[in-house]
Design a binder for these strands. Structure first.
Lengths: 351, 351
DNA sequence: TAAATATGCGCAATCGTTTGTTCTATGTTA
DNA sequence: TAACATAGAACAAACGATTGCGCATATTTA
């Protein structure tokens, strides 16, 4: 058997096959979609059709099929920054799940820009995706509401909107932040800076809520001036840390709202000639492959990225299979504190 | 003006618009594709069409359009592991470029598996992408040849095949490796382990070639037993390092073929109770945001990821615009050594 | 005033599939 | 033998957009 894959000279269509063996294209279609029995195509015909299809290297035109069937087996994925390992890890798992069932993913990077997010949604709609998995930029949800209302299956990940009637899967940011800050307290820290991410995103709100709750539980008032920053990027981490470190008295600990933030904070800390954890303790959101290898192995709060992707896909898929009936299930995955060396146990609790 | 975005009740087509204002759908089409002048549609009609299209929230069905025009404005992107920041960074830049011109990217993760790569290609073909950007798994290129021969515009990135007549953009792995190893020599190292990536990929071959060339230039014979490993993953880095560190005499330096490999190597080094760079020096391929923050800031050889993405896209785009005429341009981008602290200068050159 | 040219737009085919309906043999039953 | 099933497959109409061609009017030209 010659395994040589034929060069597809132009393009093979159902009609080509049909002509070749003198049947109609409908018959070919039914055979190739496995409906021989249903439409009583004889075994002989079925066999012949399959053979010639294979011989000619037929591959169905998904555009035509989609046009006719209203299903493209394609989903849109909108991510604020695919180069961020946190997101790319989620994306990967979504893609893997999708491919298992013959679906494809159209990727859009919104670059943390709501306007681009809106454009992306339009673009994906025009490409007739069966559904959308979207990690929203964050503050605004009007455009999301309108698309959910339009009936397109949507699953939101990472960030969500309480008033949006839509399936979502997020981490328990409240609990994660709460645990992290509580841990700081347990290590006798009392002045904990928080370098936050993009404000007014659910992620950020929840983490702040956790930060406050931890304070409240310990009966420690929160110093509002210790909450700084406004984005999940590295630069913001740098700036935020600079600000915190300039305070007198200097906070003894920093809670960084993302992997990039902590990276930025680290260069600031270094520039100030300070050591982690001796001079300043730090916990970062987002576990990364390199976390354990940092100058000081980083204590992090880990989110379940691969589970997030997998669950999001399955949620979406189920909506699609149930004929676009949207579920509004919300799934929240626990975040887990992974302990390393970046927080120091202070001697005496001031107070 | 009410900015309220209308719920698209079902779906607006050209015919809907046409009916609404009593013209034919062809007229509407011509107006909406900006061909009013060419087809002598009156200003008045043009105006009305545009208004109602806007009012009704018309968004063209790209499936139908693609079916008719044979252009989908969609490109396929096949990547061995999108969660690897090296690749996701490339992917991001491709997506950004693509979107600028209204194109979309269908993402496929081949999981470093040639079989999945082949499947992905099929899938993308059936989805009628205008072209393909692919970072091949590596060893085999038969399937690539067949697809290039089929006339589909293709650009290969990161890894390439000398015998494949196809545009590509890669880093100068030879030069990068050569510089790294030469630097080791300049620091008086003489026994340099190399933890390689997937064997028989161009990336790996070129880097080994550089490794050898550096030796030759210095007149130092290469110890074949110092070349270990077989994948770009973290696990391979760990294992490779374990093997190298067990040798007596122990090599004084390790050259790691990827960011993940060096991460794995670091845990091995740590487990052995060794310090970088005091006990062992290391250089890693792939600059990363965290490179400077590692336990010992890592000397790396940086590749131009964003340029890679951008160039790859533009190469592909140009092929597509020139009516599928494939260019076979090969672009190789220089790699740059970025110096940090992970290499120690040894006292005496043994010899 | 007839012919020529311009203006403005519609017809209908087409892209490749899918699918409800119809058609024709051939066999079966009463 | 008339009536009727049944098997096996073809017909044709979608899906929504694009586009070559053609058909009316209106305007200009000779």
């Amino acid at each position: 058997m010659k395994g040589k894959s034929l060069v597809q000279n132009k393009h093979i269509t159902l009609d080509n096959i049909a002509d070749q063996i003198g049947v109609s294209s409908s018959t070919v279609s039914r055979v190739l979609t496995g409906q021989s029995k249903k439409y009583r195509i004889s075994d002989r015909t079925t066999e012949i059709v399959q053979q010639t299809a294979r011989k000619l290297g037929y591959v169905p035109d998904q555009l035509a099929r989609g046009l006719r069937t209203k299903r493209t087996n394609t989903m849109g994925l909108i991510i604020p920054d695919i180069s961020n390992p946190f997101f790319s890890s989620i994306a990967r798992n979504i893609e893997i799940q999708a491919r298992k069932v013959g679906n494809s993913i159209i990727l859009a990077d919104s670059q943390e820009d709501t306007q681009l997010e809106i454009e992306s949604i339009r673009l994906l709609q025009s490409r007739k995706v069966d559904g959308l998995i979207i990690c929203p930029v964050g503050e605004d949800s009007k455009h999301l509401k309108s698309i959910v209302d339009s009936g397109l299956p949507v699953v939101i990940i990472d960030r969500y909107f309480p008033d949006l009637n839509c399936a979502y899967v997020v981490s328990d940011n409240y609990q994660g932040a709460m645990e992290a800050v509580t841990y700081f307290f347990d290590m006798n820290h009392r002045s904990i800076g928080y370098i936050q991410g993009r404000v007014n995103t659910s992620v950020n709100n929840e983490r702040i809520r956790g930060y406050r709750a931890a304070h409240e539980e310990k009966g420690i008032p929160v110093d509002e001036s210790l909450i700084v920053g406004d984005s999940f990027g590295k630069r913001n981490g740098y700036i935020g840390a600079k600000i915190l470190l300039a305070k007198t008295p200097r906070p003894t600990a920093i809670f960084a709202a993302s992997n990039l933030i902590s990276l930025g904070a680290m260069t600031a800390i270094q520039e100030e000639g300070l050591k982690i954890p001796d001079d300043i303790s730090i916990i970062s959101f987002d576990e990364q492959p390199y976390s354990e290898h940092l100058a000081t192995p980083m204590t992090t709060v880990a989110q379940q990225t691969s589970e997030t992707g997998e669950i999001a896909f399955k949620l979406l898929q189920s909506q699609i299979l149930h004929d676009g009936k949207q579920t509004t299930e919300g799934i929240v995955l626990p975040a887990e504190l992974v302990f390393r060396k970046s927080v120091k146990k202070l001697k005496q609790a001031t107070l």
